[in-house]
Design a protein around this nucleic acid. Sequence first.
DNA 1: ATTGGCTATCTTGGATCCAAGAATGGCTAC
DNA 2: GTAGCCATTCTTGGATCCAAGATAGCCAAT
Lengths: 241, 241
Amino acid sequence: MSTLSTKADDIARALEDEIVSGAIAPGAVLRQESLSERFDVSRTPVREALRRLAALGLVSFEPNRGVRVRSITAHELREAFLVRAELEALATEIATPKMTPADLAELDAIERRFGELTLELRGHARSQAPRDAGLFVEWMQANYAFHDVIYRVADVPLVERIAKSARRTFLGDRVWSARAELDELYAKNDLQHRAIRETIAAGSASAARALAREHVLSSSRLIEVVLETLGAAGREPGWGG
Amino acid sequence: MSTLSTKADDIARALEDEIVSGAIAPGAVLRQESLSERFDVSRTPVREALRRLAALGLVSFEPNRGVRVRSITAHELREAFLVRAELEALATEIATPKMTPADLAELDAIERRFGELTLELRGHARSQAPRDAGLFVEWMQANYAFHDVIYRVADVPLVERIAKSARRTFLGDRVWSARAELDELYAKNDLQHRAIRETIAAGSASAARALAREHVLSSSRLIEVVLETLGAAGREPGWGG
DNA sequence: ATTGGCTATCTTGGATCCAAGAATGGCTAC
DNA sequence: GTAGCCATTCTTGGATCCAAGATAGCCAAT
């Protein structure tokens, strides 16, 4: 059997997902032993996976003490958004003159779907419906899909990689409990996507850049408001846990 | 004895330096066994170090075949400069309103030193002096020092980290053999630094941003010319090597 | 002579083993 | 009763060991 991936890689990916999705809380301490029995491997590939996560900045090693999931400060979060704003703006500018009619059509389709989901979500938000997690995930995916088309057309893998790693410097879904505050985000995102698409279609690269930048920055501002609303709710498990 | 760093970390740092400096050629295959005896450790910490380098994008694992130092394409190099341009521009804009007179004085001192080195280097370049490697390194350090002041004032560690990792996506010193072509770079860099400093001193954040961006982009264009001049000189050692 | 296949060797990926540093809990002295 | 010290236990960092995949060299058959 030809192993196309190594166990360390698989474990790294799995842990990465859990960390960025918030399934593993920031500040949590990762024990090599428990991870190794959970993935049913020895500690060796686990440690290699942890090394990778450390290089990505997701966890930090403390020699002879273990690894802990890095928690992100408000300052870092703001920076991550700034980086995303610049890089997504750059990608948008590069993509604009390369857009084919087919690409524009794809953007349009995603936009339409995104609009539907937005309406639905806003309805749920108002009615305080108990269970819209799946819907929210779908909305999120449509949101990312829009940007992914732009990255694909721009053909800037390095920019894309960095921007996405900044994108994932995110908080768990606990942020999304602030439904009311997010209502504004839903609507704004929708409008901004439309505006960006129109500007791209018109071929104004620099205008599209500016819109893309403002798009990311405005969600940054909103997220900050949400965080303030939630307060410093991030409990940080200590070493004893 | 309290080990403040782990062997894997030390090895990773050492290899990182050698790779970015070009001491280890792109395309080279790294054997775990030889590395382990070179650093006088077992293969375990070596592999952890390699995992870190892989996460940083400096090497790539091919399962059951080994690790190879990633070679950079012209496209990737251009992208790295684009990323640097955006992020250094951002940092400059953020730093501008935060600049104290002391910071400006420091910038000025570095600039002056930079100017001297530039003059010296240009003289050497014209006379085809045989040995100015040390001088060039000094020039490079002064160049980076200028930008480092800006980063320090801007206080954006994430932006700084990403920009610097893009900065290091560089070629070995073989690029710098193209003396004649670099003459232009020397002069231009000097002028641009002065302009940036003046604009920062004047407090025009957005103008400083634009200048910083153009500064990086112009060196990008120049490097491309140099690369064309050198031709596709990158020989790529195969697996057999 | 060349090509195909087989075997021997090399290297990696992973498991297990060992030593050293850090937390914990109990004991003693005040 | 409390504070400090020492031993026990736990966990990590690193070394060694083993199996599986990959490369290379050799031989045979056409």
